[in-house]
């Protein structure tokens, strides 16, 4: 763990519910992630892997502990500041794709750029380029309902990278896909990390998918169980 870590979690806890029904999902997580890394977070259901992912993605707030992103204390930011952090530095890929229905691939990919206030021409160009990058040239005007699961996830990846984020967060990105498509998606994510220097944080419960990562962290019962470098990863 170096001092130049991009992301640093110290003593992060998360408690759901109150009183008798309270459930401690995270029990004091300390974690540092360097820029350019490709981290897979693994663990059984209820181990807290998704919770830590949501906190890392500023989608959820920890109950206690400190979260530094490029030296900024995220836990002290307001709702709006966290939204701006997501807008400018983070890209998300979800298990369920989370595309806007009845909206074309191109418009879905353009969405983050609209919130960034990009001009129409620049927006179209960037969205087309992102779609081309994920291999969806020619599918710009199809809606999610007209695309396969793998294609929808590609659109979601294109939407995540169109803003050229520092970190790509992927929560079970292959959870809804068959093996072959999963491997295609994983090599796409791997190439984004390798060729474009995007830091990737990925939650998965499939060891095969974790093989693509450089570093694998295992969670059990809300704590880090193991944290190892994957030597074979490219």
């Amino acid at each position: 763990m170096s001092d130049t870590a991009l992301i640093r979690l110290s003593g992060i806890t998360k408690i759901y519910g109150r009183g008798q029904a309270a459930f401690q999902a995270l029990k004091g997580i300390d974690l540092a992630i360097d820029a350019g890394d490709f981290v897979a977070i693994m663990g059984p259901s209820g181990s807290g892997k998704s919770t830590v992912m949501n906190i890392l993605g500023c989608l959820d707030t920890p109950t206690s502990g400190a979260y530094e992103f490029e030296g900024v204390h995220v836990e002290q930011l307001t709702r709006n500041q966290r939204a701006l952090l997501r807008r400018n530095y983070l890209g998300f890929v979800f298990q369920g794709f989370n595309l806007l229905s009845r909206t074309t691939a191109l418009e879905n990919v353009e969405l983050p750029l609209i919130y960034r206030g990009a001009a129409a021409a620049a927006r179209h160009a960037a969205a087309r380029a992102a779609l081309a990058q994920v291999g969806l040239e020619g599918w710009e005007h199809h809606t999610p309902a007209e695309l396969s699961g793998g294609q929808q996830q590609r659109v979601a990846i294109a939407r995540a990278i169109v803003t050229q984020p520092t970190v790509l967060l992927a929560d079970e990105p292959t959870g809804n896909l068959d093996t072959h498509t999963s491997q295609e998606i994983m090599s796409l994510i791997g190439s984004l990390n390798r060729d474009h220097g995007i830091t990737v944080l990925m939650v998965t419960h499939e060891p095969d998918m974790a093989e693509y990562a450089k570093r694998i962290i295992h969670f059990i019962d809300g704590s880090v169980d193991s944290d190892r470098r994957h030597e074979d990863a490219a």
Binding site: A83, F92, Y115
Partner: peptide
């Protein structure tokens, strides 16, 4: 449907007021 849509918009960086 729109709650999920709002979640998506917030996740990709929309401000609440936007």
């Amino acid at each position: 449907e729109r709650t999920r849509e709002i979640g998506i918009r917030l996740a990709i960086g929309a401000l609440e007021r936007e």
